[in-house]
Write a protein that binds this DNA or RNA. Structure first.
Lengths: 160, 160
DNA sequence: GGGGTGTATGTTATAACATAACGGGATGCG
DNA sequence: CGCATCCCGTTATGTTATAACATACACCCC
């Protein structure tokens, strides 16, 4: 995928929802896992929203469509999507967001604007931290890399 | 309580609790903030425990000593200690841990063992992620860097 | 078809984490 | 004193997450 930093730059959206859904379904077939209606619709909601959503926000949307009203429904669907890499969990926010580039195997990192709440996904690069982990013998299975701050649009402008 | 691991290596412990408390008190005076009894005892508990603790675990300890029994007491004390940098929050665990080296200004990173729950603190280094954030114009105020995996003691041993 | 197996879903209940809001007591200061 | 500020205690509630159990359905094998 091109390395555009999806997040703080506008982009056409209707197309990417459709293609992301199709891609996810293809991946599921390839992996022999099931993209059931609840899971599919959950992913679609996340893609449409294109923002970090709490599990209960997702649940409310599912409920409105008769797809389930109890927390485990949302948590199970989100858990599946996270396992498959279609959705990421943002620990800092206790929230979830659709993956911005599910094609690549990756190791996501996030930038969270504390003012407008926008979350941008970037690629985490193995830094000194990962090296030092290896040195101490710690075997990393998964990383959480999140930065909180101000996105370009929310930074105070210099006075003229 | 002398064989707790800091990181994944054992070390003497009683001394560092005392010195960390003294150092924290000195810092508070220097900064003009108050190290009150609840805050001090909370820090001491965190230092003694030397492990990630939930806010309610801390609260239970405080309560046992008559220092407060309601959640806000613990959350306020922990909030203060986090603000002052004496304690860090582990987002992945919704938990807190005493800072392993409060002397240095820092930008902590953590290694969390999913098997035994031990948490080791390391130094986060600005990697490619931080650079790319700067490029996109995102102004980082704070980072969350956490790795989950297996600590040396919990890794499966090679079969003989 | 009957029966076993596995996966997904539905539901209840509760655990675990976190904060808003109000009041009171101590301290410091003009 | 009157007032502001900070900290603490408490009530009440909000938010996030999961354990545990029950049901439905597809699939495969005999």
């Amino acid at each position: 995928m091109s390395s555009d930093p999806i997040g703080f730059t506008a982009h056409d959206h209707t197309h990417c929802v459709k293609s992301a859904l199709a891609a996810a379904q293809a991946v599921c077939i390839q992996r022999g896992v099931q993209m059931t209606p609840v899971r599919l619709r959950t992913l679609e909601i996340m893609l449409e929203e294109h923002a970090a959503m709490g599990a209960y926000d997702v649940l409310a949307r599912l409920n409105a469509e008769g797809l389930g009203s109890k927390p485990p429904v949302a948590y199970r669907a989100l858990g599946f999507l996270v396992d498959q890499g279609f959705v990421h969990r943002i620990e800092r926010l206790n929230a979830f967001i659709a993956c911005a580039h599910p094609e690549d195997a990756h190791n996501p990192a996030f930038m969270i604007c504390r003012s407008c709440g926008t979350v941008a996904e970037a690629q985490a690069q193995s830094g000194t931290f990962v090296q030092s982990a290896a040195q101490t013998g710690f075997q990393i299975e998964q990383t959480v890399i999140e930065a909180e701050g101000l996105c370009p649009s929310c930074q105070p402008q210099v006075q003229p």
